[in-house]
Write a protein that binds this DNA or RNA. Sequence first.
DNA 1: GTCTATAAATGGATAGAC
DNA 2: GTCTATCCATTTATAGAC
Lengths: 222, 222
Amino acid sequence: MFRPVAGEPAFDRRRWRHEATKEEILGAAWGLARTRGLAGFSLRDLAFAVHMRHQSLYTYFPSKQAIYDAMFAQGMRALVEQRAALALDRDPIQALREAARAFLAFCVEDGVRYQLLFERVLPDFVPSATSMALSVEALSYLEAWHAAAGLTDPADVDLWRAVLTGLAGQQIANDPGGTRWTHLVDRAIDGLLGTARDPGRKRATVRGTRGRANSAPKEVEG
Amino acid sequence: MFRPVAGEPAFDRRRWRHEATKEEILGAAWGLARTRGLAGFSLRDLAFAVHMRHQSLYTYFPSKQAIYDAMFAQGMRALVEQRAALALDRDPIQALREAARAFLAFCVEDGVRYQLLFERVLPDFVPSATSMALSVEALSYLEAWHAAAGLTDPADVDLWRAVLTGLAGQQIANDPGGTRWTHLVDRAIDGLLGTARDPGRKRATVRGTRGRANSAPKEVEG
DNA sequence: GTCTATAAATGGATAGAC
DNA sequence: GTCTATCCATTTATAGAC
């Protein structure tokens, strides 16, 4: 995330180490969250994991909430970067399918991250404005893909989000590590495309494949 | 839940009061959970709400986990009872639509209950065997409705659950009190029915309504 | 069944020496 | 930047008087 370049005028060794330690702390926080739950680890646990006393963490983060917010930002940034790096099919419908599979893989790959980003497991945690901006940025990709496929009704995007987070949520909650729900993604998309208000010119392709995906049966990782 | 009948041989006044107090405590627990989150209230808070000292709660529940489990059982029992009481259309497809709307109403009507029943907001909470049996019982209704509609593929039920919990989850998390996602339920069902592996004899009806619900536009309550 | 008293631990956060 | 020391609130839970 923080990439200083040695020799450049703006390089600041002290600041560099500071940022590196912050990321080390966040890495440990993810690890603890995965084994003990998002709210299940204390600052003492976290400090111990990075060989510090818990008080020293306050040098890097002003509060536990700030740690959660940094984790949220990391997670959302990872989603943005995944989306920016996707090389989607030229066919916008096919592109939507690929994007959906990528999103499910992203969710299932880290259930705790999914909870932090898309569920309200931390009742009193509110993402900062900076973090929310990342969230909006991630969503903008989805909206653009829909627009490219001729899906201009905002409700299409809403339904899309609901269906995919629904699949991810069930997979993570009821069959962690399996594929019971993720492998339903193509069928889910068939349904979504079939009921879209403005399916655009690719509709015929979609119609002819009802009940079976017309895409490669590549399995979602997870 | 506990309905003694005065005068009958099995009637036990002491036990009756005990059960009544337990339910009063659970009622207060739901109230606190709704305002401060499922994990956001302490036994002190709860005891204060029922005008007790926190230690007295242990007369009724051996631990906080037991309180959560009793809440889980109450919530699941409410779902079972809602389903048992549904007077569904004779047309099995129409019945599925009605059942879906009822389920969404059930979820949205109490977001905290939804979280307890369908999300893992309490990392170390594991429902007891008794509670899980209620969960299975609730699911059996859904399976029966699908079977009646000719939907015999278990994946159909899985996808159904994912889509509906997805809608509920988005509604509760991103538009609490609104209808941004719940009003998409008919479209979601059109998609589900359109991609079902074994849609049965009602398929033509479903097909002809793509993009618009063929059912009454009755809004989900929420 | 409810209370007082208390345990025994854990929580997040601050002050100040070094 | 890291530490020791400490604060102060809060947690779940138990023992025993009444």
